[in-house]
Structures are given as C-alpha cells and as structure tokens.
C-alpha cells in the first residue's frame, strides 16, 4: 500500500518528539535564542549609540518589541531553511536516506514532508518564545500582534520550504561535509532588512531582496509593530506577494528535486 502524506507526517512528528525527548537542552535553547539576539543587538547598539536614534531611523513605535519580533522571524526562517535544506544531508550522514527514499510514494513528497513537522515546531517555538516579551510591552494587544505575525510567518514558510528544497537538491548532488549553501540563510536575512531598513542596502541588493519571502514577512512584522492597528491593505499586498512566491518556488523545487534525484541516482552518491 502506498504511503500517504499523513503517514509521512505522522512518522516525522513521532521522530521529532523522540529526538526532542532525548535532547531536552535543544528544546529549551529554542526558547532562549530570540532573546539572545535581541540582547546582542540592543547591547551593541546602546553601547555604541542610542535607542532613540534607532527608533527615528526605522520609524517604529516600539524598537524593543520590533527587535524581539525580528529575532523571532530570523530564528524561525533560519530553522525552516536549515531543517529542510539540511534534512536530506543529515539523513545521508546517518545512512537513513536510502530508506527514506524507499518509502512507497513519490520522492519529492518524502523529502518535502518529512522535515516539515520539525520546521513548523521550531518556528512556532521561536515565535512563542517571544510571547512573554510581547505581553510585557503591550499587554494582550502585543499577544494579538504576535499571533498576527505568527500567521504571516506560517504563510512565509510555504515559499521558504520550496526555496529550501532547491538548496537541498543542490547539496544532495555535491559531496561536502556540511550544507555548502548555508550562506543563503544569512543572505536572505541580510536582504530582508531584519534589523534595519533595506534602504541602507545598495539599490541592486534592494532589488534582489524582492525575490525572497522573508522580506514580506519582515515588512508585515514591521507594520504590526509600528501601528496600533496594522494597515490591512498593506498587509494584504504582502500576503499576495507571499502567495505568488509560494507558487514559483514550490514549482521550481519539484523540478529541481526531480533533476537532483536523477543525478544522485546516476552518480550513486546516496
């Protein structure tokens, strides 16, 4: 009987649970990360300059909450790209890749769905971690804003998964010790202007940033953190951009995966 998508996700949820159970520190560390980043940026910035300058430059009402939310977005994007893009590589190290590929269903389904529960969990954890911070600064409204950002993060996850699968396809073909495309994660984040307005980047980089989903997620977060009630029209625009990117990236990903699967099977680097 062929495996269904639910079978793959169920198995993956179980393995994620078992892994976290046996690596508790990792579980707790996910909660600490956004605060760590916020601390780093704030401490550095305030030692070098002032919070007021930051507020003026970015034109936001609550810089601390904004940095916290941005850190959450950085972490969740990082987790998605990292988990999905390195999943195939990780399975190759473990020697479990051939068995994953032997699952009686289409290969792209396995490679896309298998890392998804872990990616969703990691992203949700990163965003939920900043809940106390959001509530501290803006009470229930802060929690509401965070929920809104979380929804956009989930939406942003769809094109990111496609993008990550393209990276995974590349790394599968090459024999390297680590994910040699890991520079793409900070590149995407750099171009998305997580902690600064993208206007500080050269024009060409600003143009490039439009093809990465994180830009729209960051902008949505910025809108939410800037206004008491975010502008719905602006948000809808960003959501539309994310939907278009989802279609483009996932379409390309399925093609890339097919090609890399053929190449990998031909060269036998599994």
């Amino acid at each position: 009987m062929p495996s269904t998508s639910i079978d793959i996700i169920r198995a993956s949820v179980f393995s994620t649970y078992a892994w976290l159970k046996n690596n508790k520190w990792l579980f707790f560390s996910m909660l600490i990360w956004p605060y760590l980043m916020t601390f780093l940026i704030l401490a550095l910035g305030m030692v070098y300059g002032s919070l007021e300058t930051y507020r003026e430059r970015l034109g936001i009402s609550n810089p601390v909450l904004y940095i916290l939310a941005s850190s959450g977005i950085v972490m969740s994007s990082l987790m998605i790209v990292d988990v999905v893009a390195t999943s195939a590589l990780y399975h190759r190290w473990l020697g479990t890749l051939p068995y994953l590929l032997l699952t009686p269903t289409k290969t792209y389904k396995v490679l896309i769905l298998e890392p998804v529960p872990s990616a969703i969990l990691s992203s949700t954890m990163s965003m939920l971690a900043i809940l106390p911070g959001a509530v501290f600064f803006e009470g229930l409204l802060g929690a509401g804003k965070l929920f809104l950002i979380l929804l956009v993060v989930y939406l942003g996850m769809l094109p990111l998964i496609g993008l990550s699968v393209i990276i995974a396809s590349l790394t599968l073909v090459l024999r390297e010790e680590t994910n040699i495309a890991s520079f793409l994660t900070p590149l995407i984040l750099l171009l998305s202007g997580v902690f600064y307005p993208i206007q500080v980047l050269p024009t060409i980089l600003q143009g490039m940033s439009r093809i990465f989903p994180t830009l729209y997620v960051v902008q949505a977060a910025k809108l939410t953190a800037t206004y008491t009630i975010p502008e719905i029209k602006a948000l809808l625009g960003l959501i539309s951009a994310l939907i278009i990117l989802t279609l483009i990236y996932n379409g390309t990903a399925s093609l890339a995966l097919g090609t890399s699967e053929r190449m990998v099977k031909k060269s036998g680097v599994i």
Binding site: L40, G45, Y48, Y54, N179, F183, P186, V200
Partner: peptide
C-alpha cells in the same frame, strides 16, 4: 561557504547596531 556565512551574519548584526549610531 563558511567565510561567506560569517561575513553575512556579521554584516546583519553590524548593520543593526549601526542603526543606533
């Protein structure tokens, strides 16, 4: 890749910190 990754991460944080100055 490691060199590139290092530079990019550093630039993200430094650009963030420069916004305070």
């Amino acid at each position: 890749n490691n060199i590139l990754t290092t530079i990019l991460w550093l630039t993200i944080f430094v650009l963030g910190a420069l916004m305070f100055i």
